[in-house]
């Protein structure tokens, strides 16, 4: 929100802080390993391949939603509509299962998500509305429409399609979750897209310096519209996986993930002011949050203490990260 008084560029950081700044994945992965070791120490014998599969399965939807935040945060934006869109997609597919069928349901859900993303993108890209407020407004619209749809279709039974249940919750050989079938190609696409394509570079450019990007000929409104449509489609995908994972289709399914999705991107080293970050760190960030939350549950803390610790840990990690990577 604020333009911090930074002395960016005053001194070139050397050694550790440079590594942290340019390769956030390395220290973040170290942190993940530390937390897993702590988990193994307090709950001996629990941490094994099976456990890793369960954690991975739970982290995939969060990682995709955090991916939406990462991409939008690279341009200096944020997408608060991801969770409304995700829940809507999951619910839409489930509600259309017994009438039109699974394929039509998927098509309708993705189209609706793309329209929501288009609306956000037009607001942010053309009308230059603050992304926070634009995506918030769109999330109201999506949630309201999804609710109205829910009331219309209350008679027809809403069950999560078996295909989604398999992909979302089952694991190959009781080990590797099937959701990786969706997640790995998506990750590859995002990583390559950010590094190797003009679109990816444009995201960094717009976030780093919008004026410079415009003067060098970037049509930022086109980039932003594409970006928010993409973000909404990813959110819809995450919603489908989540409804498969939890075997629940509800219009508020993903609501509790909106804050963790932002937190995962921030912990993963993406700057909320834009221009710096990447999806690799975000995946690790999502894993860290999932493991922490599993650890707090395993330790048997009551919900209240869990929330307090969760929030505190996010602040501490973000603070440590900011301290180490800031140049001054």
């Amino acid at each position: 929100m604020t333009s911090s008084i930074s002395t960016r560029g005053a001194r070139i950081p050397g050694g550790w802080s440079r590594l942290l700044r340019e390769q956030p994945v390395v220290p973040i992965s170290a942190l993940l390993i530390v937390i897993v070791v702590i988990y193994a120490l307090v709950r001996p014998g629990v941490v094994n391949a099976d456990w890793a599969g369960v954690i991975l399965r739970a982290a995939v939807p969060l990682a995709i939603l955090a991916g939406c935040q990462t991409l939008t945060m690279l341009t200096g934006g944020i997408d608060l509509s991801v969770c409304a869109v995700a829940s809507m997609a999951g619910f839409m597919v489930a509600s259309l299962l017994h009438g039109p069928g699974f394929e039509i349901g998927i098509a309708v859900a993705l189209t609706a998500a793309a329209l929501a993303g288009l609306l956000t993108g037009i607001g942010v890209g053309i009308f230059r509305v603050h992304p926070l407020i634009m995506s918030l407004g769109v999330s109201f619209v999506v949630l309201g429409l999804a609710n109205a749809w829910q009331i219309l279709t209350v008679q027809s039974s809403t069950g999560v399609p078996p295909v989604l249940r398999t992909i979302g919750s089952e694991r190959l050989g009781e080990l590797l979750p099937y959701s990786l079938v969706v997640f790995i190609p998506l990750t590859a696409l995002i990583l390559i897209g950010l590094r190797r394509t003009g679109f990816g570079r444009m995201l960094f450019a717009i976030g780093d310096n919008p004026t410079a990007a415009r003067l060098s000929g970037a049509r930022s409104w086109q980039v932003l519209i594409t970006l928010y449509v993409l973000s909404a489609l990813m959110a819809a995908l995450a919603g489908l996986l989540l409804s498969g994972l939890t075997n629940v289709a509800s219009v508020t399914l993903a609501d509790s993930l909106v804050l963790p999705s932002v937190a995962a991107a921030v912990i993963g080293g993406t700057s909320i002011f834009g221009g710096r970050g990447g999806f690799g760190g975000t995946i690790v960030g999502a894993l860290i949050l999932t493991v922490i939350s599993a650890l707090l549950t395993a330790l048997g803390f009551p919900e209240a203490v869990r929330q307090i610790l969760f929030g505190s840990i996010i602040v501490v990690v973000a603070a440590a990260y900011t301290r180490v990577t800031s140049v001054s």
Partner: peptide, 27 residues
Amino acid sequence: AVIVITRVPDIVVTLAMSFVWAGAALL
């Protein structure tokens, strides 16, 4: 104070603190 001391963006700090205060309310 947490925002000023840690220099973490306001939105991130208050997001995290929202968990803390909600947890305290549950206590």
